[in-house]
């Protein structure tokens, strides 16, 4: 019997290698055909996300940031260009369960307890009951929800529900976490707390995270790289490497570097709007 719980689950190698690309997009185009004519959701998008990166996508609504995330997840198919996730097509990566996806709403099933919600993907993957239980306990403690496994979603606050949905995405140990405005519906105070917790989680698990947001402070606080996008057609206008250290207390937001990056993001957003 293995004595270490959790430590043996982690796959060594690729995730630790900071330079290896996990997601690569080349000349990506996506056009939706609608009744009002074609909508260019993505135009000539090129981006490489390396293992261990925390990449934020920021831009006004309609800039294609969520669409891009959905393309990575294999939920939308690009009309042109190439994209690989872990060296596979997004659809293959989806079938291989290469990523966990966190939606804007927690989307917990009201008829399942928190623990059984977290076990949902594990049931679908056909894991044994003891394995499911063990993983559920582990991710519940990762998101600071120990003791809430037996509660139903309606018994939890919005912030706790969103933490449970993150735990659900972490439960099957995918190395990539795709997050679509996960804290968009939460108030400022809860959002700050969850931002801190997410950074802590990222540092502990070595996940590669793609994170969609419309909040400049959130993007700057969390990311190693910030991708600024603009609408009509949705395209990347700026990619900003963050000079901030990996350790980030909340008051880093008052530092000069932080404010400078935030300025550059704001300029990028403004330029995108004029163009």
């Amino acid at each position: 019997m293995p004595d270490g719980i959790g430590s043996q689950q982690e796959v060594p190698g690729q995730a630790r290698d900071a330079a290896s690309p996990v997601i690569e997009a080349r000349a990506l185009d996506l056009t939706f055909e609608t009744n009002d004519g074609p909508v260019h959701a993505l135009r000539d998008v090129n981006l490489t996300i390396n293992a261990g990166d925390f990449v934020s996508f920021i831009g006004p609504s309609g800039c294609g940031k969520t669409t891009f995330l959905r393309v990575m997840a294999g939920l939308e198919t690009p009309t042109a260009g190439e994209i690989t996730v872990n060296g596979m097509t997004p659809d293959e990566a989806r079938r291989a369960r290469a990523y966990g996806y966190v939606f804007q709403a927690a989307g917990l099933y009201p008829w399942r307890t928190i623990a059984r919600n977290i076990q949902l993907p594990l049931e679908i993957m056909g894991l044994s009951k003891s394995e499911r239980q063990e993983r559920t306990d582990r991710v519940l403690s990762l998101v600071d929800l120990e003791g809430f496994g037996g509660k139903y979603p309606w018994q939890l606050s919005g912030g706790m529900q969103q933490r449970a949905s993150i735990a659900r995405a972490l439960a099957f140990d995918a190395e990539i976490l795709l997050m679509d405005e996960p804290f968009g519906a939460l108030d400022e105070i809860v959002r700050d707390k969850l931002n801190e917790e997410l950074l802590d989680l990222w540092a502990r698990t070595d996940k590669t995270i793609a994170f969609v947001t419309h909040s400049i402070p959130e993007a700057v606080f969390l990311s190693t790289r910030i991708v600024v996008m603009s609408p009509r057609p949705g395209r990347i206008t700026d990619v900003i490497e963050s000079p901030l250290p990996k350790e980030r207390p909340l008051d880093i937001r008052d530092s000069r570097e932080f404010i400078e990056i935030a300025h550059r993001v704001r300029d990028g957003l403004r330029a995108g709007h004029d163009g």
Partner: peptide, 25 residues
């Protein structure tokens, strides 16, 4: 749509989609 997309990200079969989501809902 979000709940159905969630199951797609798990690569769930249509039977699993029926039994675990549509039927209880």
């Amino acid at each position: 749509a979000m709940q159905l997309d969630l199951l797609r990200t798990y690569s769930a079969s249509r039977l699993q989609e029926f039994l675990k989501l549509r039927l209880p809902a």
